[in-house]
Every structure is written in structure tokens, then in C-alpha cells.
Design a protein around this nucleic acid. Structure first.
Length: 323
DNA sequence: ATGAACGAGACTACTGTGCT
DNA sequence: AGCACAGTAGTCTCGTTCAT
């Protein structure tokens, strides 16, 4: 897949997030359990003694190099069953399989159905490659990115996969953030039960980025997002009580600690010195990017039911290097 | 941890009723 | 007759459970 579509993924800003799952991620239960005690699902922020902190669209962009711009992912993206969409392909396949279709969405069955042996014949790309590419992206979205609760591929993200496979640029930064908020809300309001799905891994990376005291030492290079460096770093195990005490007794953070996301020249658009006057097009892009970071709004996180989570960056101005 | 099966809930298409 | 809406049966999808 990488051989054929690597460049396209880079253009779309999903390359690094795909590579991130090359190695298994280790869940830091202590860190998450302690951090969740400080999460408020009313404002979608962590509330500490010194004030609020929260994952932002900027964090998603710089931790995972996801695009803050592009077509907004919401219920409107769900196009009617177009010719050649994955869902229609899927329906015909399911018909053929008759009653066996029920379990074809399990990860392993899905993989054996759509995964094709490595072959470097270039003419294999279309049309089979098209479907396989979509299937790969759908598998990736369900199993690794959004961690569906049902532990199998769900068709909820089929249109998303279609769109990505066709090379479309989606605003995945706000979308992932919306899902993080929703996941944290579900866990916090449901007695911290461990049964929930959702991109909890992303929240863990965010915690590691802002609280380096609680993670192992990472050595990021300038061409990769921080998350990929953290995934390589040695694991550091802290007891839950230790993490809790750390958060509880945290009375202040310095400006540098708040601006940790802005200190690196990755991805490219963060490297711009904002005091320099830019040419028209770049300036417009920058405006839109920073608009996406800074405007309070609802983030869509549910494609079928128009669900949304409130995003309040005005509470965490310090994280953007503002007063 | 994984796959098969089951059941709840959401969605859809169709039918019947009542109003204009 | 024509239209809008409510009810209903059937289908589909997802989350859970249980066995392996």
C-alpha cells in the first residue's frame, strides 16, 4: 500500500498517522486514569489549580500532522450511495456471500477478504487496487484511529475512507479532536468503565506531550510528528497514585511548558514567523489555519446523528502562546 | 484475543387513515 | 382525488456476549 499510495498519504497529511501504528502502542493506564479525574466534560477541558488545559486543533496538527484545513467532516459529507462507493461495493459483496456476510466485517475476515498478496505489477492498481485501498483505509480508521467499540469494521466511516482513497483533503484535525472529546465524555460520565471505544491513544500522546515529567525521554527529529517519536521512546511506568498526585499538586506551569507545541518547526505551517509579512496566498492559508485553531465552535464527531462536542480554545489561550 | 451468534435499536419502505 | 402523516413490518447495523 505504501509503495503505491505513500505520496498521496503525505499530501493528505495522513502518512505519519498510518506509520504511527507500525508498532504496537502501549496503553499507560496510570496516566490516563489519573488524568481523567481532572477532565470536565462540560467544558471539555482539564481543570487544574493553575487553570484549564485541553487538546486543541493545533495539538492534533502538530502531534499527528493531521490537516486543520480541508473539507469539513460532518454529516453533509455522507453522500448518497454513489456509483463505485465502498458501501455499494460492500452491499453487492454481502449479497453474494448471503448469510455468511454477517461476520465479514470482523477484522480478520475483512482483512482476508480485501487484503491482496503483495504484487508489484503496476496495472494491478485499478480497479481492484481502488477498492483495496479504500478497504485498507477503512480498516485503518476503524481498528487503529477511532477504535470502534464493536471490535470490527463499521460502515460508519465508509464515506470517509472513500473520500480519502480518492485523494480528497479532509479536515481530520478537528474531527479527531471531536472524537477524543466524545470518548472522554463517555468514559467520565459512565463511571470510568473500561468498555468504551474511541481514540484514547491520542489523548495519551497529548498528555505525554504536555507533561514530559510523566513519560520516557523521546528524541524527535524535525521531519516527524511528536507522536511518532513518543511511540519509539522507552516506556516509563508510574503508579496511578503518583500521576494523580502530580496533577493534583501542580500549581503552575511556565509559558514555555504551555507553548510546547509551538516550539518545533513541524509541520511546516507552524514554522512561519507570524511577525513576518507574507504574500497573499500564504497569508490567507495561515489565516484559515489559525482560524481553525482559535475559533470556538462545535466539532462534529458523529456522522449519522449530527453529534457534536464544544471546542473552547479561548479557555486555553496560553497553549497558543497568547496571554 | 478473536470469531460466531444474538438481540436491541435505527432506519426504510409501504400501507392505511384523515383532512382539504 | 390528492396530499400529509402515523403506524407497521421488515431490514440493516452495531454492541454485547459467549465460546474457543
Amino acid at each position: 500500500m505504501e509503495h503505491f499510495f505513500g505520496q498521496q498519504w503525505k499530501d493528505q497529511g495522513i502518512y505519519h498517522l498510518i506509520k504511527l501504528f507500525d508498532r504496537p502502542l502501549v496503553m499507560d493506564r496510570s496516566l490516563l486514569a489519573a488524568a481523567l479525574c481532572f477532565w470536565s466534560s462540560a467544558t471539555n477541558t482539564m481543570n487544574f489549580r493553575f487553570g484549564m488545559m485541553t487538546p486543541t486543533v493545533l495539538d492534533m496538527a502538530s502531534l499527528f500532522s493531521l490537516s486543520p484545513l480541508g473539507v469539513e467532516v460532518n454529516a453533509a459529507l455522507v453522500a448518497p450511495e454513489v456509483e463505485g462507493s465502498f458501501k455499494t461495493t460492500w452491499l453487492t459483496l454481502a449479497r453474494l456471500a448471503e448469510n455468511k456476510a454477517k461476520n465479514m466485517l470482523n477484522y480478520s475476515n475483512f482483512y482476508s477478504n480485501f487484503g491482496v498478496e503483495d504484487s508489484f505489477e503496476d496495472d494491478a492498481i485499478a480497479p481492484l487496487g481502488e477498492v483495496e485501498h479504500t478497504a485498507f483505509l477503512l480498516y485503518w480508521l476503524c481498528k487503529f484511529v477511532f477504535c470502534t467499540q464493536a471490535n470490527k469494521v463499521t460502515l460508519e466511516f465508509a464515506h470517509l475512507a472513500d473520500y480519502l482513497a480518492q485523494g480528497g483533503r479532509l479536515a481530520l484535525s478537528p474531527f479527531l479532536l471531536g472524537h477524543i472529546y466524545r470518548t472522554l465524555h463517555d468514559i467520565v460520565t459512565d463511571g470510568m468503565k473500561p468498555k468504551h471505544g474511541g481514540p484514547l491513544w491520542a489523548f495519551q500522546f497529548w498528555l505525554q506531550a504536555y507533561f514530559p515529567e510523566l513519560r520516557g525521554v523521546a528524541s524527535p527529529n524535525d521531519n516527524e510528528p511528536l507522536a511518532n517519536a513518543f511511540a519509539r521512546a522507552p516506556k516509563k511506568h508510574n503508579a496511578t497514585a503518583f500521576c494523580y498526585k502530580f496533577f493534583y499538586s501542580l500549581t503552575e506551569r511556565t509559558g514555555t511548558q504551555f507553548r510546547v507545541r509551538l516550539a518545533r518547526p513541524f509541520p511546516m505551517f507552524l514554522a512561519h514567523d507570524l511577525s513576518v509579512i507574507l504574500d497573499g496566498e500564504t497569508e490567507n492559508d495561515l489565516k484559515e489555519i489559525w482560524g481553525s485553531f482559535l475559533v470556538s465552535r462545535d466539532l462534529h464527531c458523529d456522522l449519522s446523528k449530527a453529534g457534536a462536542e464544544v471546542y473552547l480554545p479561548n479557555f486555553v489561550a496560553r497553549q497558543f502562546g497568547l496571554i
